[in-house]
Design a protein around this nucleic acid. Sequence first.
DNA 1: AGCGAGCCCTGCGCGC
DNA 2: TGCGCGCAGGGCTCGC
Length: 317
Amino acid sequence: MPELPEVEVVRAGLEPAVTGSLITDVDVLDERALTRHEKTHGDFAASLIGRRMLGAVRRGKFLWVPLDRMPLDRPPSDERDRALLIHLGMSGQVLLREPGIPGERHVRIRLVIEHPELGEFAVHFVDQRTFGSMAVDALVPTPDGAPGGVGHSATTVPSQVAHIARDPLDPAFDDAGFYRALASRRTTVKRALLDQSLISGIGNIYADEALWAARVHFDQPVATLSRPRARALLAEVRLVLQRALAEGGTSFDAQYVNVNGASGYFSHSLNAYGRQGQPCPRCGRPLLRATFMNRSSHYCGHCQRIRRPRTPQPPAP
DNA sequence: AGCGAGCCCTGCGCGC
DNA sequence: TGCGCGCAGGGCTCGC
């Protein structure tokens, strides 16, 4: 449920507190929050305590905190730089709290960090549905040599993020490559928008919103999208994400990250998602809801129709 | 390659 | 009042 804008709000809120902070304590209250942590990287808590955090980086819906190297010698096989990887899943939150106060209902992991100027914080990883998780992961170089994500200049990403495409707000996102992929793939457009290995950061809500804004039907085959319509769609994707980001960016205090599922999801500005039966803001006809990919698609049956290209596509070789 | 199904999980809202 | 069910869905694996 947290999509790019929500995760970016978390990243931006976390950044000033974690950058330069030392991890002094780690408490794993629920092992299910470590499903992404590979034991080959050592014990989760032990590999974090004593390390300094260098920033907060995001690609799509993935968030990570690069770590400095241990002051002590390490075996050569262990020399790779590492990061604390965070995925919020469906219901995850990262909350900055004063140390020592009792945790929220679904706190899964608690870190205590010490900032050189701001002092001590508790970082609570709260997750009701436990689809989210934290992990310590090795950083690997980006194939294109550009920064791994938004928020840090290092040209690395956690190994678990290596297959995730750049997101459309990343300056290094490859527009031309995206259009080429659309032209060559035999899939449909919403499926493509949700494919994190093609374009990342988009979930069900903003997919429906961008498709509505671009007047594209969710089940349109991507290979039949004209280049201008593909351009328009990518532009609307960016607009929808930026608009949500602008709204979310004002709803949190710089020191306390608090993005919640229900109210924090910028729901008041949605045109299509969850509005089945209500009039389309553009044409007034009732919005529809269809089941697609085991989830809901919300769309306008009048504005968003499958458009076949004028000339038939050549058969695939 | 691409797609459907299944799995992980909890809270909520519904019908009976 | 309460029970059981369906639904919400991100990411990943498996099998076709």
